[in-house]
Simulated assay, not measured.
Amino acid sequence: MLYNLLAPLADQHQVFNLFRYLTFRTGGATMTALFIAFVLGPSLIRWLKSRQRGGQPIREDGPESHLLTKKGTPTMGGLLILIGLSVSTLLWANLANPYVWAVLLVTIGFGAIGFGDDWLKLTRRNSKGLPGRLKLVFQIAIGTAATLGIASTVAEPLTFGVAVPFFKDVLIQLSWFFVPFAVFVMVGASNAVNLTDGLDGLAIVPVMIAGGCFALIAYLSGNAVFANYLQIHHVPGAGELAVLCGALVGAGLGFLWFNAPPAMVFMGDTGSLSLGGALGAISVVTKHELVLAIIGGLFVLETVSVIVQVASFKLTGRRVFRMAPLHHHFEKKGWQEPTIVIRFWIIAIVLALIGLATLKLR
């Protein structure tokens, strides 16, 4: 909004020229989202506690320690992230950019699904919320709408193309199969982050790391000079998503202040589904869907551990891991929660650096 209001005045007042710079607005979005989270955090947590007398329902089949350490902690803290991210993006982004609205649709839409899931868990006082199939239907519907909007904006030959990392000229044309592929990326990323969200601070830091990486990717992809130099596909207008990524990082930092061990609040599905969906949608716009699997490799590992566990048990009756997702396996092995969280953060940083290396190694 500030860009649309103030950038046109730059010719009359030079100070307003700052709003033409993506880097300035990205920094502004980051700090605004952080400020909103700090200001709203305490009152929102008090409100959540007043509405959730018993806190988030804890899985009875989960690690035994959670019944003691996590009991009474309120959930739906993802509202704090959603408010900070949405308000900051609307304030600092170019609202005439269709990519901003497409990603916001996925972010807020998936967040609404997560909110409904969290609300049912609380009102029913058990760890089961919305039926899995119903959540999936809603996610697919929102993802399809966003994908069609993105595809109608991206110019040929990128419209239905999938770029391959490490290869500068490879663009796989999927035709209309691109729509289910893009929806799979958004829904898969959303649920992968959801599976990772099981320990204090475990999910939000890798999400911020991925958000920071995609802020850079969006900026470079949207800049013709840098895109040509790096030999990545130029997507005009994609740079505006750097502002949204900055807001994501700022809101995530603010949430982490309250989610740091021992957590005062959990993000719940409200936060995890929305953040994963946002990363998936941004990767679709910037044509870095496959790079997301590298940068977000930690989320992939967590998801694969669940798939392997379920498949092994159904086929052989035996479990590969002591418990899935993967972080629970290490809890069962006796690792302390801070140890697991910090080591997983390190893995996320390493994978992010590998993902960023694909921008140059071609």
Rank of each mutant, 00 (worst) to 15 (best):
F226Q: 15
I294R: 04
P206E: 06
V193T: 07
I295P: 05
G280L: 00
G271M: 03
V300L: 11
G237M: 14
A227R: 01
P261S: 13
F214I: 05
V207F: 04
V249G: 01
H288Q: 15
L290S: 02
F266G: 01
M186K: 08
L298F: 09
L273M: 14
L292S: 06
F184L: 15
I282H: 02
G212H: 04
I217A: 02
G188A: 07
L273Q: 10
L195R: 09
C245H: 14
F255W: 11
S221P: 11
G201E: 02
V207H: 02
C245Q: 11
L290K: 00
M186E: 01
V291Q: 14
V265N: 06
G296F: 11
A281M: 02
L279P: 00
E289V: 13
E289L: 08
G252K: 05
F255Q: 01
P206S: 11
L216T: 14
H288A: 08
A203Y: 12
N191L: 04
I295W: 02
G250N: 00
V183R: 01
F184K: 09
H288Y: 10
L230M: 02
V205T: 07
A189W: 03
A263G: 02
P262F: 10
T196W: 13
V187K: 04
M264R: 12
G188H: 10
I282V: 15
L298Q: 09
N191M: 03
P262W: 11
H234P: 05
S272R: 12
V183D: 00
G188M: 06
L298E: 10
L220E: 04
P236L: 08
N194P: 14
V183L: 04
A215W: 06
N259S: 03
G246Q: 05
L195D: 07
H288G: 07
L220T: 12
F214E: 02
F258L: 06
